[in-house]
Every structure is written in structure tokens, then in C-alpha cells.
Design a protein around this nucleic acid. Sequence first.
DNA 1: AGACTTCGGTTACCGCAAGTAACAAGTTAG
DNA 2: CTAACTTGTTACTTGCGGTAACCGAAGTCT
Lengths: 214, 214
Amino acid sequence: MDTTQRTDQQRSADRRRRELLEAADRVVLRDGPGASMNAIAAEAGITKPILYRHFGDKGGLYAALAKRHTDALLDSLRAALDAPADRRERVESTLDTYLAAIEARPQVYRFLMHPAEGGTQNDQGFDTGRHSIPLLRRMGEELAQVIEERLDLGPGTHELARVWGHGIVGMMHAAGDWWLGERPCSRAELVRSLADLLWGRLAAAGDRMGGPGF
Amino acid sequence: MDTTQRTDQQRSADRRRRELLEAADRVVLRDGPGASMNAIAAEAGITKPILYRHFGDKGGLYAALAKRHTDALLDSLRAALDAPADRRERVESTLDTYLAAIEARPQVYRFLMHPAEGGTQNDQGFDTGRHSIPLLRRMGEELAQVIEERLDLGPGTHELARVWGHGIVGMMHAAGDWWLGERPCSRAELVRSLADLLWGRLAAAGDRMGGPGF
DNA sequence: AGACTTCGGTTACCGCAAGTAACAAGTTAG
DNA sequence: CTAACTTGTTACTTGCGGTAACCGAAGTCT
């Protein structure tokens, strides 16, 4: 049981793990987030206990699965966020990247936004707010960091950037979700509308005559 | 079986239904959204099949439960949205009302944002985006309507208002969720930061020196 | 009065999915 | 040859959503 051996075994275990994840991916994309462990095991050509040996429990598997997609999406978002262009263009391009991703693979998206699913009885001692979707949290933090790095907002920049990061991500997510369901306009129009919102067009708009101004 | 009889029965059934809902409420608030039908029935002093007679299935019960809270929250939001004050004040008051609500009763909030929970295998032919939380959708539509009624946004007002409605609600939700978990600042500060974001401070902020402007 | 429906309710069950225990190779080390 | 470890299995337990079938106490019809 020397070092090289150990490494070999771990290598093999990692390869196996990746195979299992790919099988799980296929099943989840086919059957939705309610896919059973049995089904996943069958797709991978093995049986349940092996899955449990590798991932602990269903949550572990789903977390691992989510991490893959989350990382991938975050990478492309980072690219859009880092492109050499002015601020507005970059914001629009980031929004568009996100929307294009959820448009292209709605099942993945659906899975990422739905991961909790308390099978039996899960965490009772809940932290009053920890249930948020990991992907959203990560995107929020990431954006917050970018904002803080690049914008000069005076004192309190740190907190402000974080609020904005999570807020903007939430805006993008909710609008995207609604848009994906109803498809009321093109992606480009949606991007433009959201960027307009962030650019303060809500505050600048004139009141409609008749009632008190909004 | 004349009309009065029928009415009496229905009245009684409605009262019962309300009692059951209140029991369910207590259990869900105590045990979280994973509360079992057995537990709810026990809390109500009866057994499962009665719940099923009243609500069809778990989804029905949860939908009824969610509707109560959703309606209540929407009422208070409407009040804030309709108050006689200028636009910025009204936006801030609406944000604050929402945040105060989720702060006061995080369990209710948690439940409202989590209602899906496909028990067995549910809707497989999924509409690619219909899984969003009903409360968020309703809030988004409501806000969209208010925006459209009161703001003059030129051509395309209707679509623009809806995008903004859902986007703003999503911003509020995500930021609130994050805030509730980490409590990085006071509610008032959060409200101010979000309103600033909506007022275009992101676009107006100066670049930090060193990198390309965000 | 006595038979007949009709509530409000219960027990006992089905099916299914998560998770686990216990066991059966095959492989490598000493 | 045996001991330990990896990889896999079968078969089980537990718990939940959901349902079928039964039960008793009312009111109703004749």
C-alpha cells in the first residue's frame, strides 16, 4: 500500500466517479430532478450501494452534479464579465450569456434551481435562510467581487457590492425564469430591458397622467 | 337535500377546511416544508385520508396553504405600493415591507419558496420553465401591472413593465434571501442599497483606477 | 319502528424510493 | 496460503404518499 498504489487507486476511483456523474447527468436530464437513485445506478450499469459509497447520499450526488454545471456556467459568465468593452456592453453580454445558457439547456437549468428535495426528513435545525440555491449564491458572490474590484463606490463599497451582486443575479434569474416560461419577447429585447432597468430608467421615467406618480 | 341543507354542509366543510389548514400551518412552521401528511393529520387530531378528501393530494394542501400566505403578503405589499408618497419612498417602503415579512417569519418564507417537491414522479413533460415559485410569479405580475399603470415608458410599455416587474421582484427576493442568511447589515441599509441600484447608481459609479472600467 | 343512504372517521394496506447490512467474489501483499 | 482491500451484489428496513375498505352515528323515507 505505498504511495504510487494509492495514487493509482485514487485515479481509478476518480475516473469511476466521473463516469457515474455522467450517467447521473444523462438520467437527470432525461427524467428531471426527481430521478431515482435506482434509475441512475441502472444507467451507470451498476447498483445503488455503489452510488452511496461514492457520494454518501442523494444530496451528495446532486451536489457533485450541480457543481459541474455551476462551474461551467460560471466560467462562461466570467468570460463575458471580463471582456474588453465598456460597462454597459459587458453587462448586456453577461446577461445574454446567462439567458442563452438557460435557453439552450432548460433541463440543466431546472435541475440547478431545484436541488433541495428533502427525501426523508432532512435538516430540521434550519438556519432560517440557508435554503437558497447554491448556484445563485455563487453567482451573486462572484458578481459582487467583480463590482467591488472595479467600481469606486466610496465608503461601504464592500457591503454595497455584495447587495448589488446578489440583487442583480436575482433579477437576472427571476426575469429569465419568467421569460423562459412565457417567451414574451426575444432574448435581445429582454437583455436590453434589464440593462435599462439597471441603468436607472425606472427612476427617470415620467409619470403617467391620472394618478399619483409611481 | 334542498339548498339550505347544501349550504349548511358546505359551510361546515369550509370551517373544517380552515381548521385543517391552520393545523397544517402550525406543523409546517414547526417542522419545515418537509412535514409529512401524517404529522399534519395528527396535529389536526385526525388521520390522513381526511386530508386527502379535502385537498386531493399533498400538492393541493400545500397550494392552499401557500395561497393564504401569499395573499396576505401581497396585500401588505399592495398597501406599501399604493401609499401616498413619491416614487422613491414608495419603492423603499415596498422593499422594506417584503423584507420585514421574511425577517419576521422565515419559516413561512422558506415554505413559500419551496413548494414543488415532486413526491413520486411528477410532470415529466415539463414546459421547460414552469417550475418557478408561484409567489414570485404573482408578485412579479402584480408589480408589472402597477408599473404599467403608472409609468409612461413610450411604446412597448407593456412588455417592459413585465420584465421589470419580474426582475425587480427577483432582485428583492435574492437579495433578501442572502441577507436573511448572513445578516451583513441592517434592513434599512439593505433597502437603501437596493433602491440605489434601481436608481441607476451602478451605471453612474466611477471606475476604480487600475483596471478597465466595469 | 325499521331499512337506507350519507357523512366523518378509522384501520390496514400498496407501491416506491432512500438508505443499509451482509455477503461474494477477485486482486494484491506478506 | 492467508489476510486485507476493492468492487460488486442481493435483500432488507424504514418512511412516505396515496388508497381501499370498512364503521358507526346521524338523519330520512315508507
